[in-house]
Design a protein around this nucleic acid. Structure first.
Lengths: 256, 256
DNA sequence: ACGACCGTTGCACATAACGCAACGAGGGAC
DNA sequence: GTCCCTCGTTGCGTTATGTGCAACGGTCGT
């Protein structure tokens, strides 16, 4: 037993999500009389959840932005991402990380351990190496080019392995690639026996607010099989982004 | 005559914007029986507008983010402006806002945070104070004088700081100045330690459809250095306007 | 200036939302 | 482990409230 009146109101919101509608159009969607639709819309208009322009056409209102912003502030990206990351972790059995760019550094803000006996070492709150970690590459790639440059030139480029990028130029070139393809890899650049792939999470404004990654020791899966996890990873980050309000403009060819 | 049921549902959303709530708490807010609150929440939960965790505590749900994202998407100007605002944000490192005049109020429709540790607080969807905010002045200044007058006389003129304009006459005089010079300032009129500059964005018909601003705490930059950001801001708004089809008729002596 | 269209209002009727009270599940304390 | 207490859930009868209808009025286009 639930309120059908509220259900109708929610249906109106969904419809307005598609674009501006007149009162009559909205009434037609619900298959109710115009006056009924009007009475449903009025309280939402008062709360600025919906809005109407001079021509009396309805659209979603600014209070919606305010609510979404408050919600994200409270919960943070970590809470929103959690169920999706857990599922990715369950599906792949591998270590899953969530990282964010905060004040010049990339920090791990969540982690789901591999179920295999051999695990990689990391801990929530630790900083990622900016010139190695796949999550770092994803996050840096979203920054404006001028800032990327500044960061790249300020790094130490500690050569952890033979694959580690060791010059600002190499890193900047890599970031261009990452920005273009929409994901990043770490091919034994930090630990000689660990490969990672990472993909960005975007919020409603389209900005990259976090990055998720799968890390796997190559004794478990060789490099090319790690790349095969990419579609699954990207499906996960797409789902998280959607939960943050992001609507993918390149939603054409889908291939989960 | 409007649906009080929907009004109650909206009230619940506003309450959930403040934080997680139990069913009983929500019922208490509306002063209704628990079962009533439950019936109101159920359709919203089905649409994922609200969500409940394992402990049955309600919070705002992912569908709300999706709606907010769609709503932002519908504001065409936001999409056009985004890359330019991002660039301005990157170049100055300061907080950048985009605001529009909608139905008698000035609403922030986009925001790019400062990268400095000390940030100003604001959120997309909030209303700007019409007698303080630089963006408000820019948007009001484009209205016909008669409408300006009506708005100015209907305001409350809350004196946030010592610099706040407190009379309709003072505001109207300021709007004349803004209209003449093509930009506006907020010299510690809303927060005593924050200065802003704003400039208009015009569409192909020449109407001001939005305003962009840079806001900076004066511990970061003193007032006169904020004014020095003006050329950069105006270059940005000019670029956005150009993308909207606006061709500047006063494109003669440029001194940016 | 006229007509057509769309949003708005008042009213009578019936639906659906409400409060109540009993049920059930989960958690904490002893 | 068992009891108790709290909180969410359900069924039901009443009545408030949402609904359709039809007439009104404002706005735009011709």
């Amino acid at each position: 037993m639930s309120s059908s009146t509220v259900a109708r109101a929610m249906r109106l919101l969904a419809e307005l999500g598609e674009g501006e509608r007149s009162l009559e159009q909205l009434a037609a969607v619900l298959d109710v009389h115009k006056s009924t639709a009007l009475r449903l819309l009025r309280p939402m208009e008062e709360e600025r959840i919906v809005q109407r322009d001079a021509a009396h056409r309805y659209r979603l209102g600014p209070q919606l932005f305010a609510l979404a912003g408050q919600a994200l502030e409270q919960r943070g990206i970590r809470t929103v991402a959690a169920p999706h990351l857990r599922e990715l972790n369950a599906a792949t059995g591998q270590t899953v990380h969530l990282a964010a760019y905060e004040g010049g550094e990339v920090v791990y803000i969540d982690k789901y351990d591999s179920r295999h006996p051999v695990r990689m070492y990391s801990r929530i709150g630790l900083r990622a190496a900016l010139h190695c970690a796949a999550v770092a590459k994803v996050l840096l790639a979203d920054l404006p080019p001028s800032e990327r440059r500044g960061i790249a030139e300020g790094l130490e480029f500690t050569p952890y392995t033979a694959h580690t990028l060791t010059t600002p130029a190499a890193l900047l070139a890599e970031l261009d690639t990452v920005a273009a393809q929409g994901w990043a890899q770490d091919h034994a650049e930090h630990e000689s026996f660990i490969n990672c792939v990472a993909a960005p999470v975007r919020d409603a404004t389209g900005r990259v607010v976090a990055a998720a990654s799968v890390s796997v020791p190559d004794m478990l899966l060789p490099y090319d099989q790690v790349l095969a996890l990419l579609p699954r990873l990207r499906a996960t980050t797409a789902a998280i982004s959607a939960d943050c309000g992001w609507t993918d403009p390149t939603a054409l060819g889908r291939e989960v």
